[in-house]
Design a protein around this nucleic acid. Structure first.
Lengths: 331, 331
DNA sequence: TTGTAGGCGTTATCAT
DNA sequence: ATGATAACGCCTACAA
């Protein structure tokens, strides 16, 4: 049933070595045999056994993409960017996730690095540390981090400080002076950068930073936003704007709860999100937010990793992409 | 750098065959050598080369998941179900998509079936035909279709007719008599079934089916819904309810455009979606809809495919899941 | 230009 | 209980 090089070789009256060379477009093959071999290969509907090839070449032509979870639109959009650019690239994408696994994150990394099942790794995560990823370097498995700047690793990320600063500038210029900042506890460095951007903007406008205006949530969900709104509301003097570097879903939760409580958006409270998820256009009023170029991040990531795998890149490479402030109705 | 069975064998003073048996927990190994081998394996941080293993066993321990595209929350949720159940299963997920690829769908199927890179395939698609999937059967690669009933193939799907009928019943019972039905042109059999459910419900309530109340859109997007609203509005006698088997995003588009035009939801127009995507809770008013158990579909799919791969299932197996009518504010 | 031969790392079948 | 040995299907020197 399954056709091998040998089968073709026999019918063509040559050796499997010759057939291999033809299949792989190697030079120094006579036109005659090349044609004959290709013809027979087609007739027999030959496809190379990629596993066998992988063993011989020590290359799997597969890329591992590690995501925290698939429940986040942000992650999924990056994945989509990876996949759609991947169309033109002869690498298979293998999907791994890190939450709720039986093995720990570093166990997964270790295993992936050593099992030789993938040629390179794209890790989408805001929170990994460089040490955790050292295993890949040790095993010389090319790797790249998306959504977080890593000094000593290839990475693709956005200028979070600028994104947050743009958003805050906008609110200040609209006349707001008491601006809440809703951060998330589990988003590591990028969240710190955004907080810095918020502070920087305040400072530039001679507004004093107040720690009691910073609220921390656990995750980027509507629920978190809903839970945060009461705290915003009870603050005195009155908060007139809420910037949510924690993410659009938090901002949406705040909007929903505010409306429920009779607080008008944006008249009584302006709300600005972060990410620009699809839901930002659905909520009413639609959400003003800081767009992260998610598809582009995925696109860069896959191109960079392939370059690395194929030895086209040396040294550590970073790609910083700009955010874009998207003005809609909520602010 | 990379540690093989042979390395362990040498240090342990045994053969690689013995080491292999230890690693794979085969019986008939003395406790002494078992312990010694495992100890050395641990010391050397041994991980089996899965490619080599795959060649020897003719098994890749990988499952291909083919999706139309990752832009659809519906698809992504199923994928999420697959992945989260996959946690406890020792199979890797490889991701493939079918839209915008350089190769056609059947070329992809052919390649996957013959390259021996995966042990089985989950195909998420409402539109595949059974012929297209024959290639997998021919190559004895277990396969399963999700989101569409296939007589002669394993499949996981919902009772679409019932789902649509439930929704229509609800609207009729609320007193509606002129109910639009917005279908999608690219969703194959499931959409036909939903249309049947709509018709069946009307019939049971002695309401005449009118073809001019059926509107067809191209895809499940807000844009499609926005484009459809004018047609709904101009109909006479007045349409008082719109059921959107085409999907939640279409329903959301209709809601948004209706509000813009001063049509109140649900007072002037009731809207019911299909799928129950995350956005259904975000839109205002929140969307009454027919929930498809997306995570469960993924869960069943991966369990079934693994059973098939491991020979635990014979014959064609179908799993029909129920939909659930979710009442929110839009109807 | 093509054939020979060996190896990639593992598993599996026999012996012993 | 363990060792030899031969696959698995492909690639790649090197030789012819």
């Amino acid at each position: 049933m399954t056709v091998t090089l040998k089968d073709i070789a026999e019918r063509a009256g040559v050796t499997s070595a010759t057939v291999s060379m033809v299949i792989n477009n190697k030079p120094n093959i006579s036109e005659a045999t090349r044609k004959k071999v290709l013809k027979i290969a087609k007739e027999l509907n030959y496809y190379p056994n990629v596993i066998a090839r992988g063993l011989a070449t020590k290359k799997s032509n597969a890329i591992g993409v590690i995501v925290p979870n698939l429940a986040s639109s942000f992650i999924v959009r990056i994945l989509q960017g990876i996949k759609s650019t991947n169309r033109d690239i002869d690498y298979t994408v293998q999907l791994f996730d890190t939450v709720g696994q039986k093995e720990s994150e570093s166990q997964l990394f270790q295993r992936l690095a050593r099992e030789r099942r993938i040629d390179g790794v794209i890790l989408i995560s805001a929170t990994v540390t460089e040490e955790e990823l050292n295993i890949f370097r040790e095993e010389s498995v090319p790797s790249i981090v998306v959504a977080r700047k890593c000094e000593n690793l290839d990475s693709v990320y956005v200028n979070n400080e600028q994104g947050a600063s743009d958003a805050t500038d906008y609110l200040v210029n609209k006349g707001h002076r008491v601006i809440a900042c809703i951060t998330s506890s589990k988003s590591g460095l990028p969240m710190q950068e955004r907080l810095e951007g918020y502070k920087r903007s305040l400072q530039q406008h001679d507004i004093e930073f107040r720690a009691d205006l910073v609220f921390e949530v656990d995750d980027d969900t509507m629920r978190s936003g809903i839970g945060t709104f009461p705290k915003i509301k009870e603050m005195n003097p009155r908060i007139t704007a809420a910037f949510c570097p924690a993410g659009d879903m938090v901002a949406i939760g705040i909007i929903k709860e505010a409306k429920k409580e009779g607080v008008r958006i944006p008249e009584d409270l302006c709300v600005v999100g972060y990410d620009d998820l699809p839901a930002a256009e659905v909520v009413e009023p639609s959400l003003t937010t800081v767009r992260q170029p998610k598809l582009e991040m995925g696109d860069y990531a896959i191109n960079m990793i392939v370059d690395k795998i194929e030895g086209r890149e040396a040294g550590i490479k970073h790609k910083e992409l700009p955010t874009k402030f998207i003005i809609r109705e909520s602010a």
